[in-house]
Design a protein around this nucleic acid. Structure first.
Ligand SMILES: [Mn+2]
Ligand SMILES: [Mn+2]
Ligand SMILES: [Mn+2]
Ligand SMILES: [Mn+2]
Lengths: 154, 154
DNA sequence: GTCAAAATGTAGTACAGGCTACAAATTACA
DNA sequence: TGTAATTTGTAGCCTGTACTACATTTTGAC
């Protein structure tokens, strides 16, 4: 059983490396929850982009741009609907609700800020765009502020 | 049908906003593949940390630090074994293979670099640690180099 | 040495997000 | 107008990651 002492956990062998259990668990939990919204964010952003530049966002186009099958896209769009982020009219495309639009806007801002920061640090644009597609979903408000601050004052 | 013209896709209505379909699909695909390895990376890193600081990495401890049930941790450890990254001896803990150790080392370096960069940009340490836990899995080699370069020359 | 606590393992469930294959509806065009 | 291509929808399958509940094994303490 537990190597845990009766009273408290004083200190470990090696130099203070590991964070407290609760702290670490909270961090990982935050990451897991961000991961579960990442897909919704990408769909919302893409749909908004398509609506803006093409006037419509059809499941087939969404699927092609994401690099997944149309069946997969349709299922994910269903999840967006369930989450109250989108609506759809067959052969007429997908639309964003108020909530979906607000999400897309936040995501767009984040995406751009992350790309701009990476570019400012000397990352080539294609790598910056590719990395940002993942990074953007894990950047907190505080970090976002720091990015903006850095970009402004340099 | 396809609004796609017979020949080529010249230019869209709005200002050149969207990337080419293939490019965008490749970026999203890269992100999806990074996502699928994120969990393996976190486990490898955590196991290495526990082995270094506690001398052992038991499923229960791993589960507690990750904030998941022990059943979940055991299943994920199975995936690590299947991937040739870890081995385990019941009641004796989990161990990393050569390959697993190498992965943990790479992840540890990345984790630290990401945290250091965020800190350098003025992000408070707890936010930096929390965000890094997600970001680290989506940073390419090129971007990592840029981070290191920036940290060195500032 | 016994026995309770802790750790581990297993089973069953749920949901997300992939896929292929097939069916139905719509649209475009000859 | 009729037909073929496109788009959309559905079904069934798989894997991954989470959970709870229960069973088994090991360990630690008395
Ligand atoms: Mn993204
Ligand atoms: Mn994005
Ligand atoms: Mn991580
Ligand atoms: Mn990490």
């Amino acid at each position: 059983m537990a190597r845990a002492p009766v009273t408290s956990e004083p200190d470990h062998s090696a130099a203070g490396k590991l964070p407290a259990e609760g702290t670490q668990a909270r961090r990982f939990g935050k990451t897991r929850s961000a991961q579960s919204t990442a897909l919704l964010e990408d769909y919302a952003e893409l749909i908004a982009d398509l609506l803006a530049s093409e006037g419509e966002a059809r499941p087939t186009d969404i699927a092609r741009r994401l690099g997944v099958s149309h069946a997969t896209a349709i299922k994910s769009i269903s999840r967006l609907k369930r989450a109250g982020l989108a609506t759809a009219r067959p052969y007429r495309g997908v639309f964003l609700t108020e909530k979906g639009h607000a999400l897309a806007e936040r995501v767009r801002v984040r995406h751009r800020l992350v790309v701009d920061l990476l570019r400012a640090l000397g990352v080539p644009s294609e790598a910056a765009e590719a990395d940002a597609e993942g990074i953007e979903h894990y950047v907190s408000e505080i970090t976002l502020k720091a990015f903006a601050q850095f970009l402004k004052s340099r």
